[in-house]
Design a protein around this nucleic acid. Structure first.
Lengths: 186, 186
DNA sequence: ACCTGAACACCGTTCAAGT
DNA sequence: ACCTGAACACCGTTCAAGT
C-alpha cells in the first residue's frame, strides 16, 4: 500500500506535536513512515511546501462566526488561538510562513470581511483585521515558548494553570484592540 | 591579534544583513573571520547565545521617550520598528527568541512603565505594552518577509515605495491600539 | 508508479593536539 | 590563551536504478 500525501502530512503533524519543529526533519519523518528520505519527494515538492500544507491543515475551515462584530471577532480570535495551541510550535511555524502568504494574509480576510459587513470602511477593516492576526500569533507564540521552558514535572497541573492565565490575558488583549477599532467608528 | 566576542557579533550581524538568517551559519561566520568553525566556541558558548547577543545589540539602548503617553509610545514603536528594519530577518529572529526572555518580555517593560506613569493600573499597562510589542514584531516580520520576495530589479524604487506604505500602515495600526488603551482609561 | 541506495553539499558541536 | 584538525552525528535534496 503506497504512501499518500495525507499520510505524510499526518505523520509530520504527529512529529510536530510530540517533538517540535526543530525535530521535524525529512529523515525522521521518513523513518516513522518506514521509508527512506528520498521517497518523500515523490509526494511533496520539498520541506517548505510540506510545512505550508501543515499550516493549511491546522487552519482548515476556520471561519468568522455570524453575529455582532465584537462578539464574532472575539470568538474567531479564540478559535484561532485554540487551533494554534493544539499543535506545538504552530505560531512560530505560521509566522515563518507569512511570506508564502497562503495562510496569514489570507487569514485576515475573514475578520476584514466581518468588519466591512459591520460598516467599517475597507482600509480600517483591513488594518484592524491584520492587527488582530498579529496579536493572536504573537500571543500564542509567547504561550508556546513559555510552555517549552517549563519543567512540567507534576502532571499537567502547572501547564493548565498557565493556560488559564494565558486565556484571560489573551482575551483582555483582544478586547483592547476591539476597543481601538470601535473608537475609530464614531 | 586574537578575535574578540565583539568581532564575532559584528561579523554575524554583517552576514545577517547581507545574506539573511538562513545563511548565518557558524561555518560561514568562521570563514569571514579567517578562522575554523571550532574557534568560535572559544568566544561564544553556542549559536543560540550568539543569536541572543545579536538581538541584544540590535535593541541596545532603546528607551521610551518622555512626554505624553500617546506620543511617547508611538515614538517608541517607530524607533523599535526602525531598529528592526535596519537588520534583515531581525523580527523573525526576535520572535524566535522570546522564550529566552531576554529581549522581548523585557521589551514591554519600557512601555509598561510609561503607561503606569500616565496613570494606568499595572495590569492594563502590562497588557497594553505586551500587545504593542506583538503588533510591532508582527508588522515588521510581515514587512521583512514581503521584502524578501520582491524582485527588487530597478534600483530600490519599489522597495522605498513599499517602505512608505509599510510606515503609514504601521502607524495606523499603532494608533488603533493606542485608541484601545485610551478607551479603557475613562 | 513508487521506492531504495548512494551520493552531494552542507550543518552545529566537541575536543585532543598544536602554538 | 587561542586556534586547528579531525571527527561525530546529523541535515535537505537529487537521481540513477530497481520493482
Amino acid at each position: 500500500m503506497a504512501l499518500t500525501e495525507k499520510d505524510v502530512i499526518d505523520a509530520a503533524l504527529s512529529i510536530l506535536d510530540e517533538y517540535g519543529l526543530a525535530d521535524l526533519t525529512m529523515r525522521r519523518l521518513a523513518g516513522t513512515l518506514d521509508v527512506k528520505a528520498g521517497a518523500l519527494y515523490w509526494h511533496v515538492a520539498n520541506k517548505q511546501t510540506l510545512l505550508a500544507r501543515l499550516v493549511a491543515t491546522i487552519l482548515d475551515g476556520l471561519e468568522v462566526p455570524a453575529g455582532p462584530w465584537r462578539q464574532s471577532l472575539a470568538a474567531w480570535a479564540d478559535e484561532l488561538r485554540a487551533r494554534l495551541l493544539a499543535h506545538r510550535d504552530s505560531a512560530d511555524l505560521l509566522a515563518s510562513m507569512r511570506a508564502i502568504n497562503m495562510a496569514a494574509t489570507d487569514l485576515a480576510e475573514g475578520p476584514a470581511a466581518a468588519l466591512i459587513a459591520a460598516g467599517f470602511d475597507q482600509a480600517r477593516a483591513g488594518l484592524g483585521a491584520r492587527t488582530l492576526v498579529h496579536l493572536v500569533i504573537g500571543h500564542v507564540n509567547e504561550e508556546q515558548q513559555r510552555a517549552q521552558l517549563s519543567p512540567l514535572a507534576g502532571a499537567d497541573g502547572g501547564a493548565a494553570l498557565a493556560a488559564e492565565d494565558g486565556e484571560t490575558d489573551f482575551r483582555a488583549g483582544v478586547q483592547l484592540l476591539l476597543d481601538g477599532i470601535a473608537a475609530g467608528a464614531g
